[in-house]
Design a binder for these strands. Structure first.
Lengths: 172, 172
DNA sequence: TGTGACATGTAATATGTTACATGATTGA
DNA sequence: TCAATCATGTAACATATTACATGTCACA
């Protein structure tokens, strides 16, 4: 939340939700029931300042990251190289592969075929997201989007290898 | 939980925790405060059956997945190709890259250097995890571990590309 | 006049985290 | 006998999800 508001200089809580929704990853949800309480916490913690934009809508509030908020954002960002952050990745497809032994051969075969197709679709979406950010000079969100493409490519290559190793029939 | 118990045929809740702890990913936490309440929910939902192993320890309980539990496990696993599951990946390092603009050039440079080093360490750990599973015939957990290696390799390659695009100095 | 996007918020419920508490068994 | 490991559990707290509720503004 701090990062998104900071990138836009100033914006509403609603705009933060829309920004998260734009992501090709389903990881970013931000329901109203989470974003408004979070906003309150950040504001009472002095990390965000908000001002009522009267005259517009029911009660439009324009948000801004405070100096202390920027400090907190930087501190959080700098935890990136920490072991727990670097190893904090999760791939729900890979998790399911761990339990493929519980499936019947026909289900397994279907799982592998359908998953490969979905991963290829997802790769296309991440590529489209990267393209949508323009071909200009390297920006921070472009390199982040590039990371999603690299990851999606690796997942497609991995799933092809999985099918090869387990056999097209799914390890029957 | 269903998957881990099923893989071991039968085990204790404590053994499930140890299994999750073994993972090279920090995503799998399973504190006592989450695993025992979860166990109760699964048991009252009829997905897991447990039997007291009297004579051993304070009150050792041996768990087993029921027929209905196996059905639920299969159903969950088969959601793998769903769009929301395939796109459910998250990489906390990539998330931070999105906000690199909030850092000062020197911090950014340090972030990129330290993160690359950490990603290389993590790659080594995933490779060790793969090797530890033996070189025998392809098994489901081996292909899952292979996926972690593919992903880690992609992240290292990506971070090298990021440093090249932003300049060794971090985009100053 | 109504629809869709903008915009904020609450309440019930579910769940996870942290810290604490208990106690048996095994081996040095 | 002491420490580590096995093993289970609770309580306070923080937080997310889902569903609902409200209201404005632009535009067709």
């Amino acid at each position: 939340m701090l990062g998104v508001v900071h990138r836009q200089q100033t914006c509403t809580a609603y705009a933060v939700r829309q920004e998260l929704r734009k992501s090709p990853s389903a990881h970013w949800s931000a329901s109203a029931g989470s974003i408004y309480p979070l906003l309150k916490r950040l504001e009472s913690g002095g990390l965000i300042r908000s001002e009522a934009d009267s005259g517009r809508g029911r009660g439009r509030r324009v948000l801004e990251v405070t100096a202390e908020g920027l400090r907190a954002l930087r501190e959080w960002t700098m935890t990136g190289p920490d072991e727990s952050v670097v190893s904090g990745v999760s791939d729900p497809v890979r998790t399911r592969c761990f339990f493929l032994g519980a499936l019947r051969p026909a289900e397994r075969s279907r799982f592998l075929r359908d998953t490969l197709a979905s991963l290829e679709d997802y790769l296309e979406r991440t590529r489209a997201d990267l393209s949508a950010r323009g071909a200009g000079p390297a920006s921070f969100d472009r390199v982040a989007a590039l990371g999603a493409v690299y990851e999606a490519e690796a997942r497609v290559a991995w799933m092809k290898e999985v099918r090869a190793q387990l056999g097209e029939d799914g390890g029957d």
